[in-house]
Design a binder for these strands. Structure first.
Lengths: 143, 143
DNA sequence: CAACGATATATAGCTTGCTATGTAAACTGG
DNA sequence: CCAGTTTACATAGCAAGCTATATATCGTTG
């Protein structure tokens, strides 16, 4: 029996995630933001001054990935790394005024992208969809 | 109202796709395959001798992405690019014996990854999940 | 048939993801 | 107290995605 990619959850998940990222990227392009930067900002808008390790835990990416994303964000004037007087190893990540100002337009763009993707879903289907994704994520985390 | 990433379809889709890719990558590591190479092989196992443009259409990635993936696959002895005597611009992509031999173990690995992700889903939930992903993909394609 | 547009592929340059490894600071047990 | 482990971050190197642009061949049209 042939492997049908249209019936493979992994295949569909990859394609769907790329389309989400592409759509979001387009919508936030005027803000000069990239998707991973937006995701990082979400955590920092919620709580400024987090440490790199705390960001890694909240966003569930590898530490090296986060380090690189933060370097680009620092280069782009979105964050500042401040030394921690209590612990010479860690640094607190602080938002710049520019990053703070992006909160409303950026989250609006993300909401618009989610709405476009789920435009023809009923409210119940949206909830079901989110719940199923969370369950698949949890299952793979355990695995 | 705060933007909650746990309730964002795009955020969950990204995380889920990364976990699928990571899991698949681990399972096919003994075969010395990377996920995008596997995806490309799926199309070529189904029909050998496709052209780069045909692969781009079937897998829905950008032409430049496919060109680079094919270059790596050629380097790794998975494919051969053969000149097309009818059209000097295009090349037919042919599988090597090594790539042909990988079909069974690689698709088994992909099935195992899908099964792990959806382990605690009922049969009905699996169908629902695939259908919802297809609909989200279609909606973003139109957008 | 020559010029021009369309098509197929390649390349440059970037972001985001990963693994593996290095480095410095902090902690801990003997 | 200091040797060894753990922790926080950085760096190297790769795959895969993207946009933008170059190049070569094919087709078409005046």
């Amino acid at each position: 029996m042939a492997f049908q990619k249209e019936r493979s959850a992994g295949y569909l998940a990859n394609q769907m995630a790329r389309l989400f990222a592409k759509g979001l990227h387009e919508r936030i392009r005027p803000l000069d933001l990239a998707p991973a930067q937006f995701m990082t900002l979400l955590a920092l808008w919620d709580e400024d001054g987090l440490t790199q390790i705390e960001l890694v835990r909240r966003l569930d990416v590898e530490q090296a990935t986060m380090a690189n994303t933060l370097t680009r964000m620092e280069r782009d004037g979105l964050i500042e790394r401040r030394a921690n007087p209590e612990d010479g190893r860690s640094q607190a990540i602080h938002l710049t005024p520019r990053a703070k100002a992006l909160r409303d337009p950026a989250t609006a763009a993300a909401r618009a992208q989610n709405a476009a993707a789920l435009a023809d879903f009923s409210e119940e289907e949206r909830e079901t969809f989110l719940a199923l994704m969370r369950r698949a994520i949890a299952a793979m985390h355990k695995d």
